[in-house]
Design a protein around this nucleic acid. Structure first.
Lengths: 379, 379
DNA sequence: GCGGCGCATGAATCCAACG
DNA sequence: GCGTTGGATTCATGCGCCG
């Protein structure tokens, strides 16, 4: 059992709290083993647990970008587990403590990737939690798949759960709808990854390998807690949860083993800078996605593979193929833009306006089809 | 053990198949219990399994015994733990059969929602599958949350897995990149839910409650199978997998218990038109092109021994030798790739794009010469 | 001061064929 | 099976430098 040490003096004011809460180490970091620290907290004492546990990535060798540069991977000891069984045992232990520590109407948030989230989700259900939603964090700027071997891993998954089917959890429906231009907030959220000024650095290096964006925590706390509520974070890291909680007038309890992370978190939360303006902007008005790939129209049957296309003067002809590429009469193939530029021997070409299809003898640009698609699918 | 009955005559032609495959019930539906039907298939005989298993376990609906048979009455004696345990046992049984039936380089796709996907994903990992991606189907037109009690459940999750860490699965990277306007395909896909003309109806009612959109299967089959590959679907429903497989020139095996669904599927698949071969062709990776040795270009006079080469920034220089190796100024020698990596002190280097020759003052990569050679010698 | 270009980097289970 | 070698492979963003 690790030694637990309370780090940092109380930050911010201490408002009137329920008698039970007066024993809580509010707005402080418990430095030490996460399970031991959770065990030190009383039953049914916190309103939310937010947890960002190790992902158990199981990475292979080193990875290099196509330009030869080295990818800085997560190789920290805290992410290594010998077997799935070991990871499951750890997961179930800390989750069981979270269940005990949560008030009956409190709720749990956990974030993970495909490496661990299925095991976490199974444990969540087995321990009696009731899953309310799974939420997808769509990264607007994920790291590409450099070797072209899989789909770009462009999202992470969060689980939101109450303590049971009948529990009366907090959900600020109106706040979410307002935040989303008067449309119900969906289960897929788009945010950039944490970088720029927000990313904590020391000597030019990132302090924590997996710092989460404040915008993500902002939306979670705004949606599922009330001012004054207590949020516990058993994998506190550099304190994103604490920083956002403080700014939103919530109380927090952090648990973290690494002294380096604790120190960075304390400093950060005391500074408690307002949200970066760009983060606020991305948060409040989800980017419209007017971009449509030509392949989308093929996949959805707006154009059929084998269909002939031509330019406005019927000088060049090509047929659509199953993957959304075009095949010209002379055997050249490529995307609508690339083939158009190839045939005309020009550096660029807007395939949407260059290529046409025939409808009752008349030629229409394929861009017309894109407009039809947008009308049919946009709210 | 359920009775298995083969439904529907073979659809389409039966091409020359490997002797093992000749025993498969290709392009047919096995009507009966899913686990019994899977057991009737030989080991390592299919290229892909696509599965859309039931997941209405908590909605007062179906329950399954570990052998897959149906439990009619949900009694109160079945508490949550028993319910999850029964679902897990069922899941592991059919997944284990899928593992057995898949070829070593085949892959598995499963779709689900937060009700079941965590249990499915855990089982997938425990059975030895190696998860390659989880994919998010973002619904462009999801059903709203009418009571305003949660986030709009606007997505479903798919898992793509190989039979092990070392397995060489099929992934048509170029096709996916082409389909997505020359940007790597990401792990979040947007499609509308299945409706309109595509949605199968009888007497004004939908035939199947959870019919999947063909666009979803189209992308999956295009990405992870080749023409002629065999796709098995143990929860065939109304045959979306079969219809798309036929259109894309793939073979299919369906398994379905409900005669109503089987009948609808047969009718639907017979109406689906296969694409002709030219439309089916997709963008190929350069890997598929015949390899050209640098020495071949030297032998054929495209480059002359003694000719100087340099990188794009003229930082390094080397001369061509008669055997197709390069000699640097500092006396190091090796293949175009090896010398490039040596000079830059990097683990790898693509010599074709690293080395350039000078033509009228401008630098051109030697890869351009390879392309010229390929065009001159390919039929 | 501003715009353009080059460079760095992010939770990553990241090669294939041949001898 | 394993070691060697050929050669395929990246998107969005922020920041700093330079003209």
């Amino acid at each position: 059992m690790g030694v637990i040490q309370t780090v940092g003096r109380p930050i911010g004011t201490r408002p009137v709290a329920a008698h039970r809460e007066s024993d809580l180490p509010l707005d402080q970091i418990l430095m030490g083993d996460c399970i031991a620290a959770l065990r030190s907290l009383p039953d049914k004492s916190v309103d939310m647990v937010f947890a960002d546990p190790p992902y158990n990535l199981q990475l292979g060798g080193e990875l290099f970008r196509p330009d030869g540069s080295h990818v800085d991977a997560v190789t920290d000891a805290w992410d290594k587990f010998d077997t799935f069984a070991a990871y499951d045992a750890f997961t179930r232990t800390w989750l069981a403590e979270c269940y005990r520590v949560l008030k009956d109407n409190g709720s749990l948030w956990v974030i993970g990737s495909y490496h661990n989230i299925f095991r976490v989700g199974t444990a969540v259900q087995d321990l009696g939690f009731w899953i309310l939603n799974d939420i997808i964090w769509r990264k607007s700027n994920p790291m590409p798949n450099f070797k072209g071997t899989r789909f770009t891993n462009a999202h992470e998954t969060l689980i939101w759960a109450s303590k049971g089917e009948k529990a009366k959890y907090t959900f600020n429906y109106r706040s979410m709808k307002t935040l989303n231009d008067e449309i119900q907030m969906r289960s897929d959220w788009e945010f950039p990854i944490c970088g720029g000024q927000e990313r904590l650095k020391k000597d030019g290096h990132k302090v924590h390998p997996t710092q989460k964006p404040e915008a993500l925590l902002y939306r979670i706390l705004l949606a599922c807690t009330r001012p004054g509520d207590v949020i516990a974070d058993p994998f506190f890291g550099t304190g994103t949860t604490g920083a956002v909680a403080r700014r939103l007038g919530r109380r927090w309890i952090g648990i973290e083993r690494e002294p380096t992370y604790c120190a960075a978190a304390i400093e950060r939360i005391e500074a408690a800078l307002p949200l970066d303006e760009s983060a606020l902007a991305t948060m409040q008005s989800p980017k419209a996605q007017p971009k449509v790939a030509f392949g989308t129209l093929v996949e959805n049957g707006y154009l059929l593979p084998g269909m002939p296309l031509m330019d406005a003067k019927r000088k060049w002809r090509a047929t659509v193929r199953a993957d959304g590429s075009l095949l010209s009469e002379c055997g050249q193939a490529g995307s609508i833009h690339r083939l158009g530029s190839l045939l005309q021997n020009r550096p660029t070409c807007n395939g949407w306006t260059f290529w046409h299809y025939e409808l009752e003898g008349a030629l229409k640009p394929i861009d017309a089809m894109r407009q039809t698609w947008l009308l049919a699918t946009q709210p």
